[in-house]
């Protein structure tokens, strides 16, 4: 039995507590099939097994809670973790730059990574915390983004209630297309920049 089947079986057998726990852990970055579960929950709403209000309320709460765990780890996590990420990212200067970027684009980045580019959501949580993005603003963008995600996916699950596996596969692929296009823009912007002259040490 695959992980997806295992989690789906849990949802069918135990209902909303499994939905809450899975979304909570998935939002912190644990690789669990949150989207598939949300679509399936939408299908069960359509069939009258689950109540729409409970699904939306519990799922949004779990997602927001999980996102804040990630934010908290980034902001108040151990200095050792921060030092490692800082070294990996290029030192304190780069972290300061990341902080500036987060403050400039943070709101939009947080909002879009909740529902449109979900694979990068846990990373954005962590970096928002590390960049000390203001917590009230993070909460607001996070909440609105998660409500959009939940409503969108539960509604699609209801509309295609007999096709959740195919729908999940299609949406999963398109999500990665959007993430890939974003990466292409970031890398492309670097590549079309005029080449900088080599430094003295590089010339020697």
């Amino acid at each position: 039995m695959t992980l997806n089947e295992y989690v789906l079986q849990g949802l069918v057998q135990y209902g909303l507590p499994v939905l809450f726990a899975t979304i909570l852990f998935a939002s912190t970055g644990v690789p669990l099939p949150a989207t598939l579960l949300l679509l399936t929950a939408g299908s069960f709403v359509d069939q009258g097994t689950f109540n729409m209000g409970w699904v939306v309320g519990l799922t949004t709460s779990a997602a927001v809670l999980g996102d804040h765990v990630g934010y908290g780890i980034g902001r108040w996590g151990s200095g050792r973790l921060l030092a490692t990420i800082s070294r990996w990212g290029g030192g304190a200067q780069k972290i300061a730059q990341a902080e500036q970027v987060a403050r400039r684009w943070g709101g939009l980045g947080i909002f879009l990574s909740r529902w449109l580019m979900t694979p990068i959501g846990p990373v954005i949580n962590l970096t928002s915390g590390m960049a000390r993005y203001p917590l009230p603003a993070f909460f607001c963008f996070d909440l609105v983004g998660e409500i959009v995600w939940v409503m969108l996916y539960v509604t699609m699950g209801r509309l295609f209630s007999d096709q959740v596996q195919t729908l999940s596969a299609a949406l999963g692929n398109f999500t990665w297309v959007i993430v890939g296009m974003l990466l292409m823009v970031v890398l492309g912007r670097y590549l079309i920049r005029p080449a900088q002259p080599a430094t003295v040490s590089e010339r020697v």
Partner: peptide, 20 residues
């Protein structure tokens, strides 16, 4: 690499969309 992967995901997404 990212371009190739993105095209691959787009093709698979379209195939699944047609099946849907």
């Amino acid at each position: 690499l990212v371009s190739l992967l993105t095209i691959n995901f787009a093709i698979r997404g379209i195939q699944h969309g047609r099946r849907l």
